[in-house]
Simulated assay, not measured.
Amino acid sequence: MGIQSNLRSLAIALVVTSSLFAVAGCHSGSTADSSASVLTDTKLVDQNGNSVELSSLKGKPLVVDFIYTSCPGPCLMETAKFANVALRLGSDLGSKVTLVSISVDPEHDGPKQLLNYSRQQGADEKGWYFLTGGPADIDQALAGFKLSREVEPDGSVGHLVNMMLIGPDGRLVREYNGEIVKAQDIVDDVKKTLNNG
């Protein structure tokens, strides 16, 4: 009985440990092995009211995050991190690399709200899209990234702290935990992607 109990405990510990490693690997900066494009044909709208089809952004590396303008904390931190990435990319932003911030609260974030947010955060940069659309369009876009929104009964929105580097072919290159990744690490990975592409 004691040996069985110990074996069961050991088996549970191994499952928990391997699950933790899998989660940590997935979010802290894992290299992707995706053969399909994550950029759907979904049409969204940018902060200037222009229609943008996600798949039309292929051809350059993209760094994508997921925000909403009424977010009390994590989104501001992620946007500040993206602003740091933009600063480090310099003239490569727009010409060689695109930043994309997709709202996960399309019910409240229209182009006007996204434009105001981008200006308040010092993020109104050429080559940086803030995208929104109808709720179904946002859900379809997120599904391409294998993500989904969480909307609570009171209308509040759950945070998505994922950041992703997408290659010029639209495939996922790397996924990051936006709360812990350093801006320079993203820039280094972008430069590697540019050199490989």
Rank of each mutant, 00 (worst) to 15 (best):
I3G: 05
S5P: 00
S5T: 13
A13Y: 07
S19Y: 02
S19T: 14
L20W: 08
L20V: 15
A22L: 14
V23N: 08
A24K: 13
A32E: 14
A32G: 15
S35P: 04
S35G: 09
S37Y: 12
V38G: 13
L39D: 13
T42K: 09
L44H: 02
D46T: 01
Q47I: 00
N48L: 03
N48V: 00
S51P: 07
S56C: 10
S56N: 14
K58N: 06
K60E: 03
V63I: 11
V64H: 04
D65Y: 06
Y68E: 07
S70T: 15
G73C: 05
C75P: 09
M77F: 09
A80S: 15
F82A: 10
A86T: 06
L87R: 15
R88M: 15
L89Q: 12
G90N: 10
S95F: 05
T98V: 11
I102L: 14
I102Y: 12
I102H: 08
S103M: 12
H108F: 04
G110Q: 03
G110H: 03
K112F: 02
N116G: 05
S118R: 01
S118N: 04
R119C: 03
Q120I: 08
A123T: 06
D124N: 07
D124K: 01
E125S: 10
K126S: 12
Y129L: 13
Y129G: 01
Y129C: 04
F130L: 07
F130M: 06
L131T: 02
T132L: 04
T132A: 10
G133C: 04
G133E: 10
P135N: 03
P135G: 02
I138K: 07
L142H: 00
L142S: 06
K146C: 10
E150G: 00
V151L: 03
G158W: 07
G158T: 05
V161M: 10
M164E: 10
L165F: 03
P168S: 12
P168W: 03
D169V: 11
G170I: 08
E179C: 11
K182I: 05
K182M: 07
I186K: 05
I186N: 05
V187R: 02
D188M: 01
D188E: 10
V190D: 02
K191S: 12
L194F: 03
G197P: 08
